[in-house]
Design a protein around this nucleic acid. Sequence first.
DNA 1: ACATAGATATGATAATTGTCAGCTTTTCAA
DNA 2: TTGAAAAGCTGACAATTATCATATCTATGT
Lengths: 234, 234
Amino acid sequence: MDKEEQESRCEQCIIRQFNALRAMSKEELKKVSDSKMVRKIKKGESIFEEGEKLNGVFCVRNGVSKLSKLSANGKDQIVKLATKGEVMGQRSVIAEEHSNLSAVAVNDMEVCYIPKESIVHTLKSNPDFTVEVLRHMAHDLREADDVIVNMSQKTVKQRVAEAFLYLKNNFGEDKEGFLMLTLSREDIANVVGTATESCIRIISEFRKKGFLKTSGKRIGIADERKLQDLVEGF
Amino acid sequence: MDKEEQESRCEQCIIRQFNALRAMSKEELKKVSDSKMVRKIKKGESIFEEGEKLNGVFCVRNGVSKLSKLSANGKDQIVKLATKGEVMGQRSVIAEEHSNLSAVAVNDMEVCYIPKESIVHTLKSNPDFTVEVLRHMAHDLREADDVIVNMSQKTVKQRVAEAFLYLKNNFGEDKEGFLMLTLSREDIANVVGTATESCIRIISEFRKKGFLKTSGKRIGIADERKLQDLVEGF
DNA sequence: ACATAGATATGATAATTGTCAGCTTTTCAA
DNA sequence: TTGAAAAGCTGACAATTATCATATCTATGT
């Protein structure tokens, strides 16, 4: 077993610590590892589509994927950004429904595809694993509730401010102080649920006020305190 | 065992068919039944509050409860309406977090309080039950995703129209054609995520256009087709 | 029945947000 | 390197939605 092959064994995979797979037994993990497939996905490529029947889940090893849903007016609403260690598609596999979301790579990615059999079998036989999955889903549900409240009770400006704080806290910033995860203005608008132009306008405003700094499409947070105040309604 | 006592046994409870309790064994159910407490709650009374630590879950036997979250601007956002057969508080119990939502009775209710021990123990030992809970939570999560998209991509008018269709489909209407579940205009506004005045205005408009009919605070759907068209953007 | 608090209704106005059009800058592949 | 094409930006304007003020109705307890 060479180095690369070794690293691609689930048993050795560090990523696993962040998700429910850590509750699997050695034997179960071995099965998963044997049945999984590593896939490289380029920026902009689709991983799965809304309405598609998923026969497995995707575990993110590297990169970021946007999970979105097309609305009647033709705009995508980004519901979640999935990053290293997160599992995509588990909701659909568990509920045995077609996917309610599309997944598209925001940058180059590496994901493991795990056929549902490996998962479903363990769900039925290893309660620790099932409870662990349940915990993760409970967490996702709480986050979704929070998003609902933000969407309906906060202004667009507050939501934009919050989005940048979220990006900083979850993806970090480089040495120059720019956000590690660079999204297009359109993607930001789709996270926030607003028109691209409105989003751009607000970013400009924040830049003029010294809350943000920009360089091309890169954006950095210049005054976190002020952004935070804005989110909280001051 | 008299009739009332018999009906209050979980083993006999029909409600159970609608939730994850149906996956419990006879013995497990007996334990739950012995530890549960039936509680009557009057309209407007609170069942639990946001931030409260829940030591059990609430199974709705009768009536409807609104699950809401207070936003920074002082308004409640109603995230879900829980009705007969639904279990409230399970997310918090499973995630071992304080509740992220408040539950208030919309009309007179009867709920069973089930201490978390009965649940948690079964979660660890009966995978069928755990998977069933997981399925329900997966379903809730999907619904939450849909709400996010609606909130951020639909106009207030569309959301109001959708809310009435939802109320009709989930709670039905009486012989006169009024919705069985009567919510105050303020509650409707809090479901839709808008100002109470805006909500009232839109209801008036819909009445004038013949989409709805009203009688005091009761509201009925007069033209489902037109409401549906509106939701879909015509 | 009646008073009254709370809910519903409506107008006027302000603030927010979306849409369309046109322009400039950046990005990326030939 | 360069020239489309895409992304970013800005102005003007329209549409939507919130806010405040005030009036009317209605449910509820006494």
